[in-house]
Amino acid sequence: MNRASLIFALLLAVLVPLSLLAGRVWINPFAADLAPNALLILAELRLPRAVLGIVIGAGLGAAGAAMQGYLRNPLADPGLFGIAPMAALGAVASFWLGAFVPPVLAAWSLPLMALTGAGLGMALLALIAGRTSSDAAGGAGGGIALFTLAGLMLASLAGALTALAITLAPNPFALSEIVLWLNGALTDRSWREVAIAAPLTAAGIAVLALAARSLDALTLGEEAARSLGLNPGRLLALLVVGVGLTVGAGVAVAGIIGFVGLVVPHLVRPLTDRLPSSLILPSALAGACLVLAADSIVRIMPLVTELRLGIALSLIGAPFFGWLLLRMRRGQL
């Protein structure tokens, strides 16, 4: 465990109890007599929500670090692969197909459809990757660029189909459900969502960790990396599966939560030797901290309806992105 991991692990250890106590109903752990519903709030509402925040943040952080390493670009984001929009498309489709789902599966239809969308996105990417890497059997030049463009194509296609599904929403209730859901939130999530997302995210992070040293080799460019024994096809497969699992699982249970994958590696990088392999674990921990902290803040904000987490993170993330661009212009990145 490097220094950055230790720092963010300690921060997470501080944030978890704070997050459990904060909310519309503040819980005072030192009170002589806890409110009768305090334990219920903790066990049934706050704890699953905190765990889910940690899981989703960790997945997005690790995926962001891996994507920036793979694309050799500090402005890369897991969304670039088009997996999150595909998962969202799957979820939106579930609002449409709700009537056809057997009642026993009704509660599972949204996450399952979102995971199906993510899986479809991964399969399409693998298909495209097969084409680009066979072209790269000789010179790999342009392989990564071509693949990124394919991801962007997938993202815009999924975005367009999602917009179409919204404009043709079967009824106003479904429309508002879809729009609200797309904005990403951890409100009213239970252990059921944790059970879906946690194993998939853990598997995804493990797969990304397997790619870490190959990502280090890419620091020197594609040709030099291949001369160091990098297998581009294997790396791409690990990336697609790792990002697909982490991002797909996140979207399936919480909707779209942007900017975490973009922002987190930048918070971590100055604390490490800047090689991608040193970033993946601390970015997972920092992502968990960021989502947990942001979710606790939206919960205690004095608004009539709770601010959606996805909106809040984008409100923070967009100015941060602008600041990154300015720093890049000054050559500080």
């Binding site: 280090d216 620091t219 030099a224 800047r274 090689l275």
Partner: peptide, 20 residues
């Protein structure tokens, strides 16, 4: 193999780069 264009994505320290 040493490619023609020095192409280093991240601002790593000399020691870390050589260790690659």
């Amino acid at each position: 193999y040493l490619p023609q264009t020095p192409d280093i994505a991240w601002d790593v320290a000399v020691e870390s780069l050589v260790a690659l």
